[in-house]
Design a protein around this nucleic acid. Structure first.
Lengths: 344, 344
DNA sequence: CTGTTAGCGCATTCAC
DNA sequence: GTGAATGCGCTAACAG
């Protein structure tokens, strides 16, 4: 039950290996239509499909992308992965999935592993325990391995030539401004681990909106989460007792967690506390109060990242492909307009 | 910036390729500790890591598993994938991720692709548009390609030797019995697409519980969903107007959808309608009424599937590895006890 | 138009 | 203890 090789179909048709390879790869050559047809038919009959390992060994190309995410069971990453996989499948590429568990050392390990496996490029979602040094370290490794990569929504070095990101400052700004427009002045944040720039970007945007409205920035109103619902719950608990009328969570899951905490404590959303999330995952209208959030086109981003990566690898194109996706405020029901209610 | 090969380290140390290969692979041989050490050190110094493509070409083993799921953005599959990836990472294996979009023809295509890529085995979640014939077709292809596989939670042929599944009949039974014990007699079901046996298994269990209680089975109370929240919403809408006091949804997402429909229509859970889900995804306590559900250890299942697959491939072990995971009822707040309230 | 010749990077007999 | 030779399945010059 051996797989049929190019040699089998050569002997089957009486042609040489070269001829077979040429026609099967559609190479420009002057092979008669007749023999072409014969070869193709034999290939089909024998159910031939090339051994990608052998091909890869020669061409140094495997048509495979590595995907490093911190947690595939996080809906943000699973949607992203779906986009990446879809783009790859369309182009005949494959994706090998790696979970870093948000550990920088795993990032490093995985980069090595993927290099050893001969992937042609990596879609890299840096683990969020990375500080500047660690980030630089992983870039260095990538470069040392001569590995093309696209980083998702982050660019420490500020020099990446192939990136795909969201305008996080804009996103943070939109969320905060929306709250401010609705009369809120004391706005708490549930952030992510400090490190990656999408966190600082959003904080920037938030501060900018505050500044525009002449509202002082209070570090005390920021609590750090880790994007899990659990952490949203805990963050909200920490927040309780401090003086604020609204919460801006850096993803929807943490917003859900905060919502739950508030509900359990008899604090009503949005009557007592307004809430804004981030991402717009497909669960936002599930709660009794649908969640106002900042939408990011995650799936599209995944597709674009993979498409650009592939195009870059295949064409060796020299042009930069930095693409930025604009966030969009999705107004739903979790923000109360304080202006409409004199007295508070 | 070429990668260092085994040859580089051979010339570096003055040893032959064979020697290097022998020590780096820890092969039984009589090579002096001194040279061993020299080789290992050189390897480290030159940052050597073997080219997996070349190794795979010879050994016919790539230490890679293919994973076919219908939708990686579905939380069930993303948790499963995480388990699979984790087990693989531990053993130094990789996983290539494939999304079938629940299309049988994609399944077929992906099996071919994965075979061409030389994966050593496949973790296969059959697309749910597969009927008996299609299922058999994909088994046949897998066998023709001589590809070991473990199917997740399904076994059409009834002859698979390496499987991993949940006791779905038990799960369906637990859900229905719980409802019946709470005085419900007219229990609607939101099922999945008919085909895979986890659907028929759960229906069996449901019917068994009904039968035990002397309650007639009414096909009219079954509505088919597709595991998305959307479909749960629609299914509940279809159900409204029919005569039932409880709904058993075949996954939590559809239960959430049904919940939403009910809430939007002013129907209270559990006061007016009781609700039971399936899976116990990490969102079950998010709703204002936490969802009673049937827990499946998805992550563990993913790990086990991958572990068994790897073990089988590596040892060529002849023993069957059919492992069955027991579902468990998670009682929360979405079921009302009708017995406690005379008059209804 | 088609076949011969070399390897890709590595593991594996089998001599020395 | 160690090295030379062979080949995995395929592509890529380069000859015919």
């Amino acid at each position: 039950m051996k797989r049929t090789t190019i040699r089998d179909i050569a002997s089957e048709t009486g042609m040489s290996i070269t001829t077979v390879s040429l026609v099967l790869n559609n190479r420009p050559s002057k092979i008669s239509e007749a023999t072409k047809k014969k070869v193709v038919e034999a290939a089909k009959r024998l159910n031939y499909s090339p051994n990608k390992l052998a091909v890869g060994l020669i061409t140094k190309k495997t048509q495979t992308l590595g995907l490093i995410v911190s947690d595939i069971s996080n809906i943000f990453f699973s949607i992203l992965a779906k986009g990446v996989e879809q783009a790859c499948q369309r182009e005949g590429w494959s994706v090998v999935l790696c979970n870093s568990w948000d550990l920088h050392e795993r990032d490093m390990k995985l980069i090595e592993v993927l290099t050893g496996r001969g992937v042609d490029g990596i879609i890299y979602c840096m683990s969020s325990d990375s500080d500047q040094d660690k980030a630089l370290e992983s870039y260095a490794l990538l470069q040392k391995n001569n590995m093309p990569f696209i980083e998702i929504d982050s660019d420490y070095a500020g020099t990446a030539r192939h990136n795909v990101f969201f305008d996080n400052e804009r996103g943070g700004y939109l969320a905060a401004r929306h709250l401010i427009e609705n009369g809120h002045r004391r706005i708490a944040c549930i952030t992510g681990p400090n490190g990656p720039d999408y966190v600082s970007g959003r904080i920037e945007g938030y501060r900018k909106a505050l500044a525009e409205a002449g509202i002082p920035y209070e570090p005390d109103l920021l609590v750090e989460g880790d994007y899990t619902m659990e952490s949203g719950i805990r963050a909200a608990e920490q927040l309780i007792g401090r003086d604020f009328t609204a919460v801006f969570a850096f993803n929807d899951m943490m917003a859900f967690g905060a919502f739950k905490t508030f509900r359990d404590r008899g604090i009503r959303v949005p009557d007592d506390i307004s809430l804004v999330g981030y991402d717009d995952v497909p669960l936002c209208d599930l709660l009794e109060v649908s969640l106002t959030t900042v939408r990011q086109p995650i799936y599209e981003m995944g597709m674009t990242a993979a498409k650009n990566m592939i195009r870059y690898i295949e064409t060796g194109s020299d042009e930069d492909t930095n693409v930025c996706f604009e966030p969009q405020l999705m107004e739903r029901s979790s923000v109360k307009n304080l202006n409409a209610q004199p007295g508070n």
